[in-house]
Amino acid sequence: MLKIKNLHAGIEGKKILNGINLEIKAGEVHAIMGPNGSGKSTLASVLAGRENFEVTGGSVELFDKDLLATSPEDRARAGMFLAFQYPVEIPGVSTTNFIKTAVNECRKYRGQEPLDAVAFLKMMKEKMKLVHIDQSLLSRSLNEGFSGGEKKRNEIFQMAMLEPKLAILDETDSGLDIDALRIVANGVNSYRNGENAFLVVTHYQRLLDYIVPDFVHVLYNGRIVKSGTKDLALELEEKGYDFIKNEVELTLNV
């Protein structure tokens, strides 16, 4: 599904990603962990197509197509979704109106008829239940005045509405209390169906108790320095990132 090969990227001349290699297949859940400044959010941003990041080398393919040459909207239409670490507040645009436009633009791209009002509302009601989100919240301006938890639930709601094949969750657990974390994780889990894949970017192992990954990768200095199963996350939680850093530096010194 997603193939990242030797990806180098940076911002304003500063190198942040120094050769990422990662392959994600349908049905898999990958977690990316790493200390602050290791490049986790940069990776998510580059994959989603944020313009101020500059790709200096390597390639990314989504369904065997060059992802990096594709506009952010076409990436979304092709089935990729980014849940933002900091969802943007957009005054005057209601979530309902916005998500309807988004769903129908994606459908159009895939050669499907736009949803009529009835079908759209039915779908919305279904997905709202998934993340315990209220109709009144969706009638309000997008994310404006939403609490941290409401914003993240809204991200997962949007994901469920757009039905992506690959969802990237960028620190979706940040700013969430335990209950909200559980709701968000349940939303993600019920969306898992063996055909779609997830890339979960997080600082903490806690989220991975709820969204259980198939693979865990540790990012450090813009590279994946260690990969393993969910046990790796537990080991990190126990020992901290220092053990990885030491290991890496030892390797470099050899």
């Binding site: 952010p72 979304a76 933002f84 005057g92 916005f98 769903v103 949007q158």
Partner: peptide, 21 residues
């Protein structure tokens, strides 16, 4: 950018925001 990552074209994203304005 946020709107575009949801599949909304740049033109429509702009139009949504200007309408809201």
């Amino acid at each position: 950018f946020y709107l575009r990552t949801r599949g909304i074209s740049e033109k429509n994203a702009q139009s949504l925001m200007l309408h809201a304005f």
